[in-house]
Amino acid sequence: MSDNPNIYKPIRAKLLEVITESPTIKTFVMEPEEDFSFKTGEFIELTVDGIGEAPFTPSSSPLETKKIEVTVMKTGYVTEYMHNMKAGETLGIRGPFGRGYPIEKFYDKEVLILGGGCGFAPIRSLLYSLAAISDKLRKVTLCYGSKTPDECIYKPYVEQLRNTPKFEVLRTVDIPDETWNESVGVATVLLDKVKVDIKNSVAVCCGPPIMMKFGTIRLLELGFNDDQIYLSMEKNMSCGLGKCGHCMMGKYFVCKDGPVFTYDELKNTPSIWE
């Protein structure tokens, strides 16, 4: 008899609160019934009982061990169900899976973060982690883009960040309204507005594939090396265990070898932006 645990069996987590972030995005605050911890950038598989499972990178701080949060955009079957869930219901969690951000490598550096849409979710978790070690960092700049001001998520958190020493937040929207007084245009336009000491920097990209693609191109033009750019890849993750084959991207299992990769690791892999 082997006493290996069943890697497919989720642990239960009670839904404590559902926060509406935008018309299509909600944050789910959960309390796992068993000990559960993760490193920033690692992801979990979330089960809606009897319905399905989907991968999410937690948006909460890894330092918070009692509760875990995911921020979910309504895009398909499982997420639609989630959006109808209420506090008190039970979800299932498997994980954490994959390779997250190598934060130790960011020491003594400037961290430039490019995020778009729901890509802010994993980034927020990263920002919490970076804030906890900010004495070891030079500075952290977040460039964030969304479609409309309505869809800019985590507004209170952005305010809080703007008042945090060493942290800077630049935002842009594609379609502004009369209240918007920040940038207009796609997320990459913000890269032209920031001052970075490229030699002593790392860049992190997380968002829709199209933004990651053009973001990476722009970062390379600015002079970043391939191995200074960290990409948070999204693929059709299912098992999270490097077994089901759904997340294969060239020779990589995104779920296990990633989801965070340097551009250097991926540049020879075909169709990474698809």
């Binding site: 497919y8 069996k9 989720p10 239960r12 089960t47 809606v48 009982d49 009897g50 319905i51 399905g52 499972e53 299932g92 299912s238 098992c239 077994k243 089901c244 084959g245 759904h246």
Partner: peptide
């Protein structure tokens, strides 16, 4: 050996 995971009630 690729596979799908299908969810049934009771996790």
């Amino acid at each position: 050996t690729c596979f799908l995971l299908i969810d049934k009630p009771n996790f």
